[in-house]
Design a protein around this nucleic acid. Sequence first.
DNA 1: TTGTACGCGTTATCAT
DNA 2: ATGATAACGCGTACAA
Lengths: 333, 333
Amino acid sequence: MTSIKDIARLAGVSPSTVSRVLNEREYVRDEVRQRVLSIVKEKGYVQNNVARSMVLKRSFTIGVVIPHLFNMFQRQLFASMEFFLEQRGYKTQFFFIRWSEASEQAFLRRLKSETLDGIIFIHELYSPAVYQHIQERGLPVALCTFEKDQFDFPAVHIEEEASAALATEYLIQRGHRNIGLITGGHFSFGKQREEGYRQALKAHGIPCNPELMVRVPSYNPEAGRSGMITLLTRKLPMTAVFAATDELAIGAIKALYDSGIRVPEEVSVIGLDDIDISTFTTPALTTVRQPIFEMGKKSADLVCDWIARGHMQEKVELFSTTIVERESVRSLA
Amino acid sequence: MTSIKDIARLAGVSPSTVSRVLNEREYVRDEVRQRVLSIVKEKGYVQNNVARSMVLKRSFTIGVVIPHLFNMFQRQLFASMEFFLEQRGYKTQFFFIRWSEASEQAFLRRLKSETLDGIIFIHELYSPAVYQHIQERGLPVALCTFEKDQFDFPAVHIEEEASAALATEYLIQRGHRNIGLITGGHFSFGKQREEGYRQALKAHGIPCNPELMVRVPSYNPEAGRSGMITLLTRKLPMTAVFAATDELAIGAIKALYDSGIRVPEEVSVIGLDDIDISTFTTPALTTVRQPIFEMGKKSADLVCDWIARGHMQEKVELFSTTIVERESVRSLA
DNA sequence: TTGTACGCGTTATCAT
DNA sequence: ATGATAACGCGTACAA
């Protein structure tokens, strides 16, 4: 590969001058600049990033931590991040984490050996070791979709409880009283959304029936299906279900369909997230919209601004959510 | 950050010795090795990858090129790749490409400045410049889901035409004669699948009606919906539709549902890919299964073996496909 | 078995 | 305005 020295030699200047031209530094005689540039172009020379980040101690790379089996919501989130990160001149390096202590350990090792300029988490880690390392290293960071109270990291997410309450309330206002819940045990938001559901019920004087609630081990359609089957076998009166995520809702609708129960005529279903595919389910899913795109942008901004200014700014950025009315909820008028 | 020199000093040895210990090189006195190792552990020292790849001219990183708005099929594919790549000790670096000449150019520039050990394409580029660069550089490469005849690169994909013919044939065998097609114009596979559809029709003496075929600009559900609407407005007799991808099929089913046409009672729909979500549509999608997981593994193997052996091995790995019978196709008995 | 010296490609500092 | 030199952290000949 041709290096900066080759270019310097061919242009009859020193490597420093070439470097100055390439990085648009200081004053270089225009004639010299043109000469260098033309040779660069002719030779198709490009700076070696490895060498650059070695001396600069920067990699122009932001890490994004995401579950290995990321769902469609996270997929949209990180597409958004990658977009804005690139706009600001950063590359994105993904770290896929599996659901195990070992995987988190391995990640920490990798993190230490990597030269990152910043990092964004779309995935809540359990072991605090990683967060500790980041804090000690002073690495610019942003948490997306959750918070970590023990650490003073900026976070962007929605008002989880209020959003879940919004969904539940929507059901209540349409006359539903026997409302099921499908949520997950992992991650903060699963419990927070359950809490929102409880609050909405309570606010309307509806008793909270534990038999109407299930916690599934994951947040994907398969889990939603099994959760709904569980609810169904309990044979309780139930006219509506709030699924803590859209993917859960999709699985729930499927279970209903397989049992010959019509949605929304017999049972209404509402989700939370508003992922792309929710427009395309039959019936189309009524849900609560997280501003995914904006949240991705905000996360990117948080980290990039931190890097640019040299210090952290805001602590928490809360996004509000809105109901998206489609076809999966019926009014019990 | 603590460097190899710090460890050396603390252990009372030279940096080279530490390096030898870390890389399990040659003979190092066991006592010395233990001492070094314990200090490494104590200090939580990890090698600096940037410096390593600078001197080694290797990065232990495989690039994966993927469309910026990758679909669920590609998502599963690259999850599989990342899994196997990691198993073989490689990191994965993603390159998201947008649908434009400029994006491909930008990618080429990045590619040149990056130190990659190999690269996998899940996305067909138009400009040959990138392929040329890779060939000249002798970079180990694998193409996944397509081939590039002009270049001698190993490729893994399914028998596109045969698979499309399989889907069409499945419809024909169930008594369908007026079979619509929704496919896309971009990428080789769109045309190949169209060709398979034509062949199957021809093999059964069914005339190919251009009015029954639409080409949409993308392969996602939204495109599938608009494609189906187009077909519907032509008001031709049509009892079944072959959608070139599952996502297209999902959109097509949606359009049918919105028009009050029941699937499969009035119109049958078959897809191709068998992505995860296809189990959860209503009705569940009958489709042709690509062995996504295995294809991801094979792509990873192709590149890793090339690196290990120093030269390319197989040229093309063809995977066969199978029908997955679910609920979206009806027999016209 | 271990240490010394050099080089990888680049940028920053300091001369000139 | 430009060049020489050192430095980044590591691996590897080669010397000891």
